[in-house]
Amino acid sequence: MQLTFLILIVLFCAAISFYRLLSGPHVLDRIAAINAIGIMLLTVLVILGSFYERALFIDVALVYGVLLFVDVLVMAKYFGSPDKTEEENQ
């Protein structure tokens, strides 16, 4: 019961952060929102794994964390310098 409540609150936080993903004035704002939402959903996976008493969800959460880390780091590197064509298309 209390774990269900916990999951609902964390999902509510992710929904608030989703606003920044939709209306970020810049790409980097959206990347920061993606990082926040990713870690919140990872926590939801961990809570579910503890709720069902199955250790295999934690493996999925580990792999998800690794891929989130690589994704955000690559995007931070790629958007790190201003690109002319990117602004012309917008």
Partner: peptide, 13 residues
């Protein structure tokens, strides 16, 4: 590390 890299790339941008 992710926070550091994001902020740094925002500064360089």
């Amino acid at each position: 590390v992710v926070g550091h890299a994001l902020t740094r790339s925002a500064y360089q941008y």
